[in-house]
Every structure is written in structure tokens, then in C-alpha cells.
Design a protein around this nucleic acid. Structure first.
Lengths: 349, 349
DNA sequence: GATCGCAATAACATCGTTTTCACACACGCA
DNA sequence: TGCGTGTGTGAAAACGATGTTATTGCGATC
């Protein structure tokens, strides 16, 4: 029975010394017990744990970090936290990180290099053990800061020749090819692509994969049917408007991400077009919202959980076992088409 | 091996000693310079800053925290990071925090007390200077942990009798009254309310304000037109379905948040109902998506930026100036109706 | 010209851990 | 009995900053 020592306000939270005193051992033994060192005898370990619980003792991570040199903190920088893809990614990343005893530091760069720079700086100050850079953009100059200090990095889609940098390759091919095949099967020949900003690696890759898929399907690519727009709701609206202004219009639009696709849905509605009767739309990401648009969005699924797991694993390996010769430097996450209600055969001309 | 030829230095990042040596001053002077102490002569300060830049020195926050007792870290716990309201809130909170030299630790409790407990524990370990608990729920038992350790807390909507706890009152009245008035003006008499889960303070407050508004407008409240559902897309679908199962149906639905409203939009569409012709819908929050639903959602705006600023300010005051006698313990954030396309006069009976 | 006062700087203890190293002790073996 | 040989523990030195206290330099005072 834990006897409650009725002390007056202890004012300070208990530290390792308090625990040691209560358990009648040295602080070294307490430390070893907490960290699961095998050399502590069971008899003492039991006493120590009891004291820890009795006091509600929590180790001070700052002191710990200071001496061990490891913070058990991973940074994650996302492109834009306002795009639901990223909160979902963060959530998964946090889950797996916490399960392994890590904490995460989240920052959103808003595709702004200046902000990205301050994010990196702050993470450096907090001595993160690694950073997941999920911005999909041209961040090399900033990354130098990290590489120079030999902080493990994991990037998406972009390989960096650095011993502390891993990459997660996103295989859009499967998903995008399936999407184009699906549209072609429905009878579409006039397919447009709403590309993301060319400053993003992901946008470029997606666009290239779209071109390849069209070629494979034997479909012509019309130059001004590939339009560049922001990966946002508004971007989708603008992209759609550009397409509508054309003399000949596509019967289907594949979008570089779900946000633009939802923007297209909205813009088409405003123009009196009915999706999918008058226009087929396909997104990419499969954010939670995609299932709830009007009509439900057919989209190419990119698993946040898979991406998050890969990113964490890449960081963990580098942080905990940097000298391992067969450390995995490349990870692969694939995509697939999920069919909902935003695609249908084109209206007969 | 691309290792740089720096065998002499063990590749350690520069510390305060390095700076002191380069600037030929004591480490105390470096520390004072960094912290803007006025007692350092300009001559030395200049030398110190130059050395700092030359070395790319960044102070170690852990060492700093250890001795100063302040981490300059604020925790923010949100109900559900998957609801776009919260990322937007986090973004604003991060902005203002960073501007004041604070870092933030984000966690999502997913309305799960067990998860909330571990969030709090992790924040305690990281020695946060304060926690913004934006879960709107029944978290008192968990909060005890924080109060007991005298960590500043800021809550939304719920007052706690504790010297280290501030509250942000959300004034839904103005917005909800405007919404009901708006519907009444359109001719609606049969108005339903999709309430959030009764475990959330916010849901309760919103529901009560709705009842009051209906009374003020002289409209009857029918008991089974107030239905409780999750604050999620799916929750909205379920809520709508329940309402549809009723013998007499409302002509308008006010929702406890935008996610449920968007769910209603989706469910109505699936049932062949046209919004706003057949049914008017009003949401609450005004998340970015609300402008892009079909039709665009009329909703009650609750400013994330205002809420974030208030939360930060509450925490900052308590953390930096706890003995100030006129420390502000209560903050107010108001709401307002923003009209879009999801409301219209009811069809004539 | 020695003493005082004050400003600027340095020395040093401190924060709460981990980790290294030394020691005490029991054990088997010559 | 004396001597390694492991075990399990504890004492003490880091870790990198911040205060607090001591020291220095220097002009003003009597």
C-alpha cells in the first residue's frame, strides 16, 4: 500500500535525487533503472520503480538531452498545414513517433523559403534528432544547414547525395495510369491535367506520369490542356476557368491533388456544369473530404499512414543506427485509384 | 567517404565557450550579449555578435531551459487535427508564438481521454511553460496534473477555479442569434439543430444558445429536431438521416460545426434534396472549405486567429508575469454570420 | 595621492541528468 | 590463504547554458 506522505507544498517537482533518496539507492541506479540497463538487480529496480510512482516523478528531458546528446525529437515540416493531406500525415507521424518514444515538432512552411529557413533554424536550436521535410519543393539551400550539422533528413521524391539524407519515392505511376486508363475506358479522349506549381517536385513528377500515362493509352496531349495552378481550392477554380476559356474543352480533368479537384467541382457547379455528366474529375491524395464532396470524388489514393511510417523509419534508422552498413536509404510508397462518383462516360459529341 | 578533412575538431557544433574564445571575452559576457542585457559595452557586444555569426552559433535551448527553468515551449492540444478548424488554429497559434520567441508542441487528443493523458504527460516531460487545451471537453481530471505542477493553462469556454488557469469565452450568441433571425426572416419556422456530442462544452453552449435564439425569435423547438451527433462529416450524414426519418421534417438545419454541415450537404444530395431550395443549412466555424462546398455554405464564423491570439496571450501573461495583479484571466472571442448560398426561403407547404 | 564608488567583466556554482570509472563484495581456484 | 574475476553500486565528471558573486579598472573626492 502506497502510504501517502503528507508533505506541505513541495514546490519543486521531484528530481532524480528525490527518487534516489526515497528508494535508498544512488542516482546512478535510478538512471539505470529508468533506462532499462540490465545490470540493476531486480530487488533494487523494484524499489526504484515504486519510489518513482509514489512521487509521480518524470525525468527532465532537457537534462537528459544535454548529456546524452539525443533529444528524441523529430521535426516535421509540411508544405501547408491547411491542406487536409498534411494534418492527416502529421497525425500518423505523431502516432508512430510517440509509440517509439519520440516527440515531434511540427512546422508549416507555406511554400515560403523564408519561413522554411526559420523553421529549420528553430529545429536546430531545439536539437532535433532528425527532420522530415514534407514540402515537396526546392529546399536544397536550406537543407544545407541541416546536412552541414549532420542532422538526419528524410525527403519526399527527391534524392540528395548526402550520407544523412534518405528519400521516400512516391510511385504515382500505378495510380495515374489507372486513372487515365479508367477515363479512356469510359470513352474520354480529351483529358486535361491541372498541374501543381512547377516549384514542387511532386507536381512535376505527377505531371510527367500523366504525360506518360496518356502516351501509353494512345491519347493525344494538347498543350494548353495542361495548366499550372496552386495546390489549393482556389487554384482549382482558376485552373478550371482557364480550361473553360479555351475553344475546345476537355471532357475530363485529372488534378494534381484533391484540393484542386474540389475547386474544380465547385467551379464547374458555378458554371452550371454537372459532374460527372458534363465533366469527369479525378483528384489525387484521397483526403478524408474526398468521400464527401458532391459528387464523391474519384481520386488516386496516396496513403498518409504509409508515407508517415516510411518517413519515421528513415529517420529512426539514421538517428539510432547511423553506422549500420545496410541502412535503408530509399523507401517506396505506392498509389492506387479509388473510384467514386465524379467520373462517367463523356456526353456524345 | 565524403567526410571533410576536419580530424582535429570532432565536428561538434560551436558552443558558448567557442564564441567566448573567439571574441576574447568570458562566457558570461556572451550570454549577456545574447540575452540583450544592457550592461555589456557596445564594443564587446559587437565583437561577440561577430563571433556568433562567424561560427553560426545557435544557443542550446536545453541547457538554457535547465538553468533558467523556462523552456519557451507552449503545448497546444486540439480535439481532432483532422477537422480543418484545428490546423487553422494551430497555424495561427504557431505564428504568434514564434513571433514572440516561443516554440509549440502540438498534440491531437482525438477526444480520447487516454490519449489526452499521454499528451499531458509528454508535455510535462518537455517542461512546457504552458498548455492551451483546445479540446472543448471534460478534461478536468487530466488537467489536475498540470494544475498540481502549477503549469499555466488556457481553456476554451470552461472556467476553472485555479490561479494558473485562464479561459477564453466564445460568444456564440451573436452569431447563432443572427443565424436564426436570418432563417426566420426567410420564412422558416421548422428549424432543426444538429448538436455536437454532449461531452463537449462547446457543443452544449452552442445548443443552449440555439435554444435561446429560437425562443427570442418566437419559434417553437421540437424536441426530436435537436439531434446529437459527432462533429465530423459522417456525424452530419447520420444526423441528417435521423432527421429524415421523422414524420414532420424541418425546412432548415443549423449545425454545431461546419463538418457536420458539410456532411448534411452530402447526405441531402444523396437523398435527392436540393440545398437551399428544399433545405437550408447553416454551419459554424467557417473553415476554409465552407466557401467551396456545393452550394457555398452559409455559416457562423469563429475566428481562429482571434482564438489563437487570445490563447497565446493568456499563456504568455501567466508564464512571464505570474505575479501581476491585473493579469487578464478571461478573454472573449465573438462570432458572426457569413451568408453564402446554402440558405433560401422554404418551399411553400 | 590614497580611498571610495561604480561600471564592466570574469569566475564559478548551478540546473537534472547520463556515463565513466573505481570500489566493495562474493566466488572459485590454485 | 591469497588472487584474480565478475557482479552490482555509487561517486563524480561531464553536458552547455544562466545567474550570482567576486574582481578589475578608472575617474572623482578629500
Amino acid at each position: 500500500m502506497p502510504r501517502k506522505a503528507s508533505r506541505k507544498t513541495p514546490a519543486k517537482s521531484p528530481d532524480i535525487r528525490t527518487v534516489a533518496a526515497l528508494a535508498k539507492v544512488s542516482i546512478a541506479t535510478v538512471s539505470r533503472t529508468i533506462n532499462g540497463s540490465p545490470v540493476v538487480s531486480e530487488r533494487l529496480a523494484k524499489r526504484v520503480w515504486q519510489a518513482i510512482h509514489e512521487l509521480g516523478y518524470l525525468p527532465n528531458t532537457h537534462a537528459r538531452t544535454l548529456v546524452s546528446g539525443r533529444s528524441r525529437l523529430f521535426g516535421i515540416i509540411v508544405e501547408n498545414i491547411t491542406n487536409p493531406f498534411f494534418p492527416e500525415l502529421i497525425q500518423s507521424f505523431e502516432e508512430v513517433a510517440v509509440a517509439h518514444g519520440y516527440e515531434i515538432l511540427v512546422s508549416s512552411s507555406n511554400s515560403n523559403p523564408a519561413i522554411l529557413t526559420t523553421c529549420v533554424r528553430r529545429m536546430l536550436e531545439r536539437k532535433v534528432d532528425g527532420v522530415a521535410v514534407m514540402t515537396f519543393g526546392e529546399e536544397e539551400p536550406v537543407l544545407d544547414q541541416l546536412m552541414h550539422r549532420k542532422i538526419p533528413i528524410v525527403l519526399a521524391e527527391f534524392k540528395l547525395q548526402d550520407p544523412h539524407c534518405s528519400t521516400i519515392l512516391l510511385d504515382y505511376r500505378s495510380g495515374i495510369h489507372a486513372a487515365v486508363r479508367h477515363l479512356a475506358g469510359l470513352g474520354h479522349r480529351h483529358i486535361a491535367f491541372l498541374a501543381g506549381p512547377h516549384t514542387l517536385h511532386s507536381a512535376l513528377t505527377r505531371e510527367n506520369d500523366f504525360r506518360a500515362a496518356m502516351k501509353t493509352a494512345g491519347l493525344p496531349i494538347q498543350k494548353n490542356w495542361i495548366v499550372e495552378c496552386d495546390h489549393t481550392l482556389k487554384g482549382g477554380v482558376n485552373g478550371f476557368d482557364q480550361l473553360q476559356a479555351l475553344a475546345t474543352r476537355p471532357t475530363a480533368i485529372v488534378c494534381s491533388n484533391d484540393m484542386t479537384a474540389i475547386g474544380v467541382l465547385r467551379a464547374a457547379f458555378m458554371k452550371g456544369l454537372q459532374v460527372p455528366k458534363d465533366l469527369s474529375v479525378i483528384g489525387l491524395d484521397d483526403i478524408d473530404f474526398a468521400e464527401f464532396t458532391l459528387p464523391p470524388l474519384t481520386t488516386i489514393r496516396l496513403s498518409r499512414a504509409d508515407l508517415a511510417r516510411a518517413a519515421f523509419e528513415a529517420l529512426r534508422q539514421q538517428a539510432e543506427d547511423p553506422s549500420n552498413p545496410h541502412l535503408q536509404r530509399e523507401f517506396l510508397v505506392s498509389t492506387s485509384l479509388v473510384m467514386r462518383g465524379s467520373t462517367a462516360p463523356p456526353v456524345a459529341d
